[in-house]
């Protein structure tokens, strides 16, 4: 379980997150949605200690973020950040293998290589294995980065807008994969999404952020309402209900 207690964050006096309390129990897919600048990436970065906590506490299972060893946390929680910037020039296969670093510390064994091979196949990256990251398309790169986080083999997986640049097939494929990991593998997935329809289709739970606060939190059917679109997003798209699932008409 990820527990977030009284987390506030500010940059140069500007409040970015305001006193956030949130529990993300083990298992399931939680979608984090909200307008641009709501603080979604900031919250995810704080959980994954990419940014330093200023106030409040965050716990992942029995580890306290900021106090526990970085290596221990890396075996429990993986993040795919929004920017996905990689400075070194390396190949797709090498990148995915680096995802295993918390386990092999630079000396990958047979087990690590097995997982890398399996991950590459799972993310349809076999053909791109030996291509350099700067020589593939944006969507392929995004897939490689998601594969790297997946290969880390952690119980918790945080993904910040992984669907960026993905075509509809790749986006559905990735979401199914995450869905399976949660249902079949008992993993906990937290994913920032902009497409509310994807959130409604694949998430068990939606957390809405707005101006640094949690604006709403619950099952997709209860969260996706006309009020959400007008109140939080400031747009007047229509919502239809297909089966039990709400669908935003864009």
């Amino acid at each position: 379980m990820i527990t977030i207690r009284g987390v506030s964050y500010e940059i140069q006096g500007q409040p970015i997150l305001r006193d956030i309390d949130l529990d993300l129990p083990r298992g399931g897919v939680t979608a984090l949605i909200g307008p641009n600048g709501a603080g979604k990436s900031t919250l995810l970065s704080l959980i994954a200690r990419l940014k330093k906590l200023q106030s409040g506490r965050i716990g992942v299972d029995d580890l306290e973020v900021g106090k526990c060893s970085d290596r221990d946390l890396a075996k429990v929680l993986a993040i795919m950040p929004q920017s996905g910037h990689v400075s070194a020039r390396l190949r797709v296969g090498e990148l995915v293998e680096m995802g295993r670093y918390p386990w092999h510390q630079g000396r990958p064994g047979a087990h690590d290589r097995e997982i890398v091979a399996e991950t590459l196949t799972r993310f349809s990256l076999d053909a791109l294995r030996d291509r350099f990251l700067d020589e593939i398309s944006g969507g392929q790169r995004q897939r490689a980065l998601a594969a790297m986080a997946y290969a880390q083999g952690t119980d918790y997986l945080l993904l910040d807008e992984p669907l960026n640049n993905l075509d509809i097939a790749a986006a559905r494929h990735l979401m199914r994969l995450l869905r399976d990991m949660a249902t079949g593998g008992g993993k906990t997935i937290v994913i920032v999404l902009h497409d509310i329809n994807f959130a409604a289709a694949f998430a068990d739970r939606i957390v809405v952020m707005h101006e640094g606060r949690i604006a709403a939190d619950g099952a997709p059917e209860t969260i996706i309402t006309q009020d959400l679109l007008t109140g939080v997003f400031g747009t007047d798209a229509e919502i239809l209900t297909l089966g039990a699932r709400p669908v935003v008409m864009v």
Partner: peptide, 9 residues
């Protein structure tokens, strides 16, 4: 970011 995520701040 990648390094921190892999447990190597």
């Amino acid at each position: 970011e990648a390094a921190t995520g892999l447990g190597e701040p």
